[in-house]
Simulated assay, not measured.
Amino acid sequence: MRKWLILLALFATGFSASADDAKAPRLTVIELFTSQGCSSCPPADAALRSLRGRPGILTLSWAVDYWDRLGWEDTFAHPHNSMRQAAYNKRLGRGGVFTPQMILDGRVQCVGSKPEKVRASIDKARAIERPVITPALAETADGKVELTLPAANVGDMVSVRVVWFLSDATVQIGDGENQGRSLHYTNVVRTSDILMDWKGDAKTVMLDPADGLKAGADHVAILLQDDYGHGPIVGAASMAIGQASTTAASAR
């Protein structure tokens, strides 16, 4: 427990907001593959929480199911999340999967519980030259979500992925390596799917937030991934939906 608290303190100090964050030229997507049954994951979950909300960063937590055999079935896990992680690792030349793992912009990977590795990986991902496509999300008068894709040179094809996620959740762990602990999770993916293969033409797509609300989400994100659903990320956007959207609007 003492080691975990030291790691948490390192993350809290190492990822404080800085003036450079406000100058981030594009959105960096940080995906954490984690599990409630993994004793090494809580520091990475805390790191993701500290990164959320920083300018130029979108965080997502994907719960995998392959540690369920340790005695606790992750309440957020889905086989598709494990498949996404395995596909990333295969493309990045890794032989297997592990938790906690962070994938940044679909291009860089690191151990999510090591502050120095995460900081270096953020810098590395931001330094990679790539096309920047900026999708836009907006709530319509009838409560739908409008996705606008600008005309862009995307090469052969870009996959447009919709991700419905829950901003905050606390889980009491009843068994396994984290038995007895109350763990907090942020930006938890509840459901995700490929909307379409996009050729770069200007396009508007309507999304129904009921799909996300039904899955227990309060936010939606769009990931544009080069060539296929786990390719390098070339654009992203996110917004609150439903009650979360109303609360955010009233707070302004």
Rank of each mutant, 00 (worst) to 15 (best):
V163I: 14
N178I: 10
E73A: 06
G71I: 15
T134Y: 02
E146G: 12
K203G: 03
D197M: 12
D68A: 08
V108G: 03
T186Y: 12
G93A: 02
T134P: 07
I103P: 01
V163K: 07
F165Y: 15
N153T: 13
R94T: 00
Q179F: 12
K203F: 08
L147I: 14
D175C: 01
I128K: 09
D105R: 12
R126C: 08
W67K: 12
E139C: 12
T204W: 10
S121C: 05
T191C: 15
Y88R: 00
T140I: 11
A127L: 05
G95H: 05
K124E: 06
R94D: 00
I194G: 01
W72G: 06
I122N: 03
K199D: 10
N89G: 01
V118L: 07
V108Q: 01
P135V: 07
P100E: 01
T204I: 13
D105E: 08
N89H: 00
T191N: 11
R126M: 09
L147M: 12
V64R: 04
T75F: 03
R126E: 05
R69L: 04
A151G: 11
G143R: 07
S121Y: 02
S159A: 12
W164A: 14
G112R: 06
G112Q: 07
Q109M: 11
L92G: 00
M196Q: 10
T140Y: 15
L166I: 06
A120I: 02
A152H: 05
V97D: 00
T140Q: 14
A77D: 01
Y88T: 00
T134I: 15
V158L: 07
L149G: 04
G71E: 04
T186I: 02
H80M: 12
R190W: 11
N81T: 06
S113A: 13
I133P: 08
V189P: 13
V64F: 07
G155N: 02
W67Q: 07
H184C: 03
K117V: 03
E73F: 10
G71F: 10
I173M: 11
W67S: 07
L70A: 09
W67G: 03
R84K: 13
G71L: 14
L137E: 13
E146R: 13
W72N: 06
D156N: 12
T186F: 06
H78W: 07
V118E: 01
G180V: 11
R126P: 04
W72L: 12
D68R: 05
T140R: 14
P100C: 01
D65Q: 05
N153R: 13
A125K: 04
S167D: 12
L104M: 14
T134M: 08
V132Y: 08
E146W: 11
G200D: 05
M83I: 02
A138L: 15
